[in-house]
Nucleic acid binder design. Structure first.
Lengths: 249, 249
DNA sequence: CAAAATATTGCAAAATATTGCAAAAAATAT
DNA sequence: ATATTTTTTGCAATATTTTGCAATATTTTG
């Protein structure tokens, strides 16, 4: 096994579990603990992991982290991301929006997965570009300063030229009666189209945002096929969505 | 078996399995490990694979670090960026490439400047989006994993639809006789077009890269209008460029 | 504090890289 | 076609890197 390859595997393990132990990795990869330790030191010098006694921790390091602000509810978002992965399979065309949950999704993506991603979000694209198996296509347009996504007519045009199998939509507000809403009309325009053109729509949302709504409407709740939260699917909070016949993961 | 043919096979193997070993390829193709090693070195110089000890990995393994602390010759790049700012004025349409020097340029951009930026570089776009005065338009396309820029026909098409006043081009190698060169053909295709369509072309380069060249040619030295380095314009190192009648800042 | 776990250091064996060189193969000129 | 030049290839001698091990130091834990 090549050194770089081994380090890539280690890095993936760290990103998935947020921590690794020398002993585990040493067994898993069939090398001495010394070698693992040296690898972790190197990775930590490159700023990719945080070395601690006995192993290493994830830096929850995204290529681009949303300006300094630690990702809110990091653990929860990782758990959402893991569930979302199960919706994908090789060869799919996936449309993915921005937001920290989707960023987390891009980070823990299994390397062997081979899909084509379309996105208009700069941070998401940066992170997806790290993924060895998949191809990332950025949808160009005028960059919205706060959301860091492409907006405008050109985006809508490009979107109408593709037919994604699934759309992974990060969201600010979802409500079983009102549907999906947002507060930025530029973003809403884009999201509307993303939902229209996609075969299936999955909404990724932490439970705080359930049953909340903003000023501008994106779509009805029926336009959504999957709802993914960090909660167990049979949590009472999710009941209204079951009733609206969404598939709740 | 011809050399080209062998290298094509190697390249296929790399892209298929994401890694190759000297030992495997040597057996498989009935040549010595030395030959394989030399092939891999060449392929890596052309930017097609990533050479590592014992074999090679597919390019997608490479991770580019944009951490400020790790930027090579950070101070020098800031000084280049400051000179580059003098070329801009309000209302201009500016095409800007990737690279750490341009990233630094985007960071120190005076906030009151009002220009429209076109770029295909994800890191550059991220930084430009922070700038209050200007508008950033991202040129969409397939994201090249190591350079983190849009590549492919769509980029070329989009570029042909605009007429920038100036192109700020980061570079890997510039030579007064050979011109601009690079090692990644995907990047070269895009840069060629960027230079063609722009009214003026400014090359930003730290002095280390002066009089160096890579395998693949981007353009002649005469296609460049401005050369910006961290050196004083009358530094002897820059004499060849004065002779080629570039404006040296 | 003492036992256990983990780090550090130096070292040697194995694997891999580099360099220079000469023979073979390919390209070019005669 | 033949001779000459250039490129490619394999080999050997010599570096360099990587790895595991052992002895010793340090930190953690109860």
């Amino acid at each position: 096994m090549l050194k770089k390859e081994r380090q890539a595997l280690i890095l993936r393990e760290v990103n998935l579990h947020n921590k690794v132990l020398h002993t585990d990795l040493s067994q898993q990869l069939n090398v001495s603990e010394d070698t693992i330790r040296r690898d972790l030191v190197e990775l930590s010098e490159e700023g990719k992991v945080m070395k601690v006694r006995g192993g290493a921790l994830s830096k929850s390091f995204h290529v681009y982290s949303y300006k300094k602000s630690e990702i809110y509810k990091y653990e929860e978002k990782t758990s959402i991301a893991r569930k979302a992965v199960t919706l994908l399979s090789d060869g799919m065309l996936v449309l993915i929006s921005g937001g920290t949950t989707n960023l987390e999704f891009a980070r823990i993506l299994p390397p062997e997965l081979q899909v084509t991603f379309y996105t208009g979000s700069l941070p998401t694209a940066m992170q997806l570009a790290e993924h060895p198996g998949s191809e990332t296509i950025f949808i160009g347009g005028r960059i919205s300063k706060n959301a860091k996504i492409s907006t405008g007519g050109e985006v809508i045009n490009t979107l109408h030229g593709i037919r994604p199998d699934i759309c992974l939509m990060g969201t600010n507000s979802i409500d079983s009666r009102v549907g999906l809403t947002d507060s930025d009309w530029e973003v809403v325009d884009v999201k509307k189209t993303m939902i229209q053109i996609s075969e299936k729509v999955a909404v990724l949302s932490i439970s705080d945002k359930l049953q909340s709504s903003k000023k501008i409407k994106i779509c009805d709740i029926n336009d959504v096929d999957y709802l993914i939260t960090e909660l167990s699917p049979n949590d009472p909070l999710l009941a209204p969505y079951h009733e609206a016949s969404l598939k709740v993961l």
